[in-house]
Design a protein around this nucleic acid. Structure first.
Lengths: 238, 238
DNA sequence: ACTAACAGTGAATGATGTTCACTCTCTCTA
DNA sequence: TAGAGAGAGTGAACATCATTCACTGTTAGT
């Protein structure tokens, strides 16, 4: 812990406030409402002063995006911790519910993070950062599936399906304590992760409204069904 | 068919060209690139003249959105027709592949249609139109699942899962020739639809890059796995 | 033939991101 | 400790954007 000079501390506070105001604007008025001028207005600063902190508006929202990924990652990790026990299944269910709950409570943030790439710039600029930010959310799930595999409770996809498919070469880097990762783990994780994303994103983006009147009921049904396909007990999910 | 006056035909052409140019701009530069000024510039018109055709920019992109839904709906319907046969399973697979292919070939359009709601305005203004537009895509799938149900080839969710969940009151309106729709059909359709959306949207939005190197292989694996869970033959999907 | 709707113009207003030359203040070093 | 340089902020400027308004021709229907 190095001692921070007064200026450095003040700068950190400014950066934090900028992102705070940006997020408030995002929540209040959607992505188009977050503008440098609105931020500077709210902070009692000149617009050009903001360029001492971020080289552009896009860079600012990219930074906000990273923060948001950390926040939702922390929330799901907390849910995992609270679930406790030694059975991965309830932990997965708790994380899935926490993820959905956070998304519903923060729709605009969810859209910024997991919607289409913004302006095609935030990705071309720093693909590594974008990737790692998104990863820190999914990894918690990945670890649980790895644990299930270690216990032999993960049903492997049939050989003829997996045959010849080189799905993922580097996913093992994300799992602590195992430099290699088996294909069933990868497949089970990806399947669960895309399914979870599909249900939640569709609900949050409003694309399910025409078809389903009680999204939460459907979510719970899918969760139960998924756990059963995994081979877990139905009651384990509650 | 009523005879169109000169002026009416010319207006229709103008409307079509406006949406055409708007789409070209969207593809070339993302959502922020579609602006009334750019459109008018490209068409050799004044910006204010565009207000004779659409009351605002938002209304214009909303109209474009509807067109896009019709386009992708037509593409998947065409794939369904080409698949032919009397087995619904290959038809579902063909539609799923056609949907994914179209989305990958038209990423920006996909984002506009199935990303987060735009500005929160396109939805609050005309919820009915937005819903029906999105529906015309999913209904093709829904009909196939209804057909599977009629044949008795659809596995029902266990009673204790479905019990007490009033999932959808009005989905039956979408299925031709049946004013009531059974819960297993609804559940199977919703499950398939959200899964399909999850895989495809995640890939198109770039949220899968960190985890999977060959998205198409994963898509095919999921498709096969889903069909097997439905109770179909593995070979039927090819 | 006339009237009213239609289509288009050009100027204006107020919002936006970004740049630039300029100050003022803090921090570190010679 | 004095001065130089980096940090932080200002205000004007430029280019883009959506939207509105008064105005002018043109077409369609009575």
């Amino acid at each position: 812990m190095v001692a921070l000079t007064w200026r450095e501390r003040r700068r950190a506070e400014a950066v934090a406030e900028i992102k705070d105001v940006a997020r408030r604007l995002l929540v209040a008025g959607g992505p188009t409402a977050v503008s440098l001028r609105a931020i500077s207005r709210e902070m009692g600063m000149t617009t050009s002063a903001l360029y001492r902190y971020y080289p552009s508006l896009d860079a600012l929202v990219a930074a906000l995006r990273v923060d948001l990924f950390e926040e939702v990652g922390g929330v799901t990790q907390a849910a995992r911790g609270e679930a406790g026990g030694d059975d991965p299944i309830p932990r997965v269910a708790a994380m899935a519910r926490a993820f959905r709950r956070w998304g519903l409570a923060h729709r605009q943030e969810f859209g910024l993070m997991l919607g289409p790439p913004v302006h095609g710039l935030g990705e071309a600029d720093e693909p590594a950062e974008r990737d790692s930010a998104a990863a820190c959310l999914g990894v918690a799930f990945l670890e649980e599936f790895a644990e299930l595999w270690r216990r032999g409770e993960l049903r492997a996809p049939r050989a003829d399906v997996a045959q010849g498919h080189r799905l993922v070469p580097s996913l093992g880097d994300y799992v602590a304590g195992s430099d290699g990762i088996e294909l069933p783990v990868v497949f089970a994780f990806l399947s669960a992760w895309t399914r979870l994303y599909g249900i939640i994103a569709m609900e949050i983006f409003g694309h399910m409204d025409w078809a389903v009147s009680d999204p939460e009921a459907f979510f719970e049904m899918e969760l139960t069904e998924f756990v059963r396909q995994l081979g877990g007990d139905d009651q384990a999910v509650r």
